[in-house]
Amino acid sequence: MSPLEPVRAEPDPAFTVTLDGREIEALPGQTVAAALWTAGVVSWRTTRGEGRPRGIFCGIGVCFDCLVTVNGRPNQRACLLPVRPGDAIRTQEGTGHED
């Protein structure tokens, strides 16, 4: 069973975004985090100290664990950011800033 069934959801058509170049499907109205979870992805960042994988934790914008780079902008909270068609999502390493 999918989480769409209990609420009898009939979403608008899915669209495509990319995670590190790989295409994944996302539903309109989802956050980046919800789209990644639905695609079976649970981590999309590595920490700047020890390079450990992180994904979502608090889910409501408080903990900043789910930071991700979207369309070249680093340090976006995946749990707050709505996913848009064509978004280029990239696994974020370290500070997320290039140098």
Partner: peptide, 24 residues
């Protein structure tokens, strides 16, 4: 507790309620 897959109870609920997404 820092492993991906560990989430807050409220976080799991927020993604389910708002995004109709479950983690696993």
């Amino acid at each position: 507790w820092t492993l991906p897959g560990v989430v807050t109870a409220g976080g799991a609920q927020a993604l389910l309620k708002g995004g109709l997404a479950v983690p696993g």
